[in-house]
Amino acid sequence: MSRALTFTLLSIGLILLFLVGSSMGAVSINPIQLLSGVASATDQIIFFELRLPRLVMNIIIGAGVALSGAAIQGLFRNALADPALIGVSSGAAVFAAAFLVFGVQEPVLRLAGVSGSAFLGSIVATMLVLLVAKKSHSTSTILLAGIAVNAIALSAVGLLSYLSTDAQLRSVSFWALGSFNGVTWAMVGVAALSIPAMILIYFESSRLNIITLGDREATGLGVSVRQLRLRLIVGCAFIVAIGVSQVGVISFIGLVVPHLVRLTIGSNHKVLLPASAIGGAAIMIIADTLCRTLFVPNELPVGILTALVGGPFFIYLIIIQKNRSRL
């Protein structure tokens, strides 16, 4: 498929999904009626105060997670890498759990709230990964440091769960599943802070292309690998941390979407990054709309759906790719 065609199709798809998503829900709203001003006041409130911020949030989070996934996969030269590798999600989980279990007594966490705590945790964990790998010249050390930090974080969450009451445990696990329920314009405003970071990462596309050749090759082409790595990791950590702090952990989109895009239009990051962002936004809308509408009036946490569908789909991708490379 040509690139122009892919972008056109992706963009049209995103707009259509936006329209469909905005009309669907516990109450159906016709967006055309709404724009021509014939909709009822209730419909207007549902649309502008509940549904629209939620859809915009879907787009920002989906785009951010998928774009970070694409960048992290390029940086680690591994199509199976995920932003979670640099500790972002697990760090957020520890701090969010700490807030939910001890938050009320602990002054710093209490001030930060669950979102602020999660953001803080993401940044702390990523810094820890970078600190462990600081002296190293190799990308694989960062991977190992990430695995170690993730393992420590997981056990910390386990310990916190052990110490928690049943009600606290329920809120910890609910938070870890991710949900767009109750998104407000204020939350969208916070999430929008990640957009400049996305743009900065896009400016690294040609260097991302080069780093896939290998660290030594990139150095030979005049790219400072350590600086690039730092910029990318900090940028992606910021994007994912902001997302996690607002809607919890959304798994598999950062892994599956870039992978899928790479299979259709190749690896050139100048195209891969924006196409992943659009694709991530589209899939986020689909997933969240399903979560809102499948079991009305109840809602499914979106992280469950993305993992439930994303996991098997990813296995399928691995299998067809294996076959392809054997040819």
């Binding site: 390029g74 292309n209 896939t212 090759e217 790219v223 190749g266 690896s267 050139n268």
Partner: peptide, 28 residues
């Protein structure tokens, strides 16, 4: 990098770039 170019023994490139895209990276 504007004076010296090096080919290492093996490259780790494992992403689906086209041949043209790979050669173009040399012009970075």
């Amino acid at each position: 990098s504007r004076r010296l170019a090096i080919l290492h023994q093996q490259s780790s490139l494992d992403f689906p770039f086209t041949v043209d895209e790979v050669i173009q990276m040399g012009r970075y």
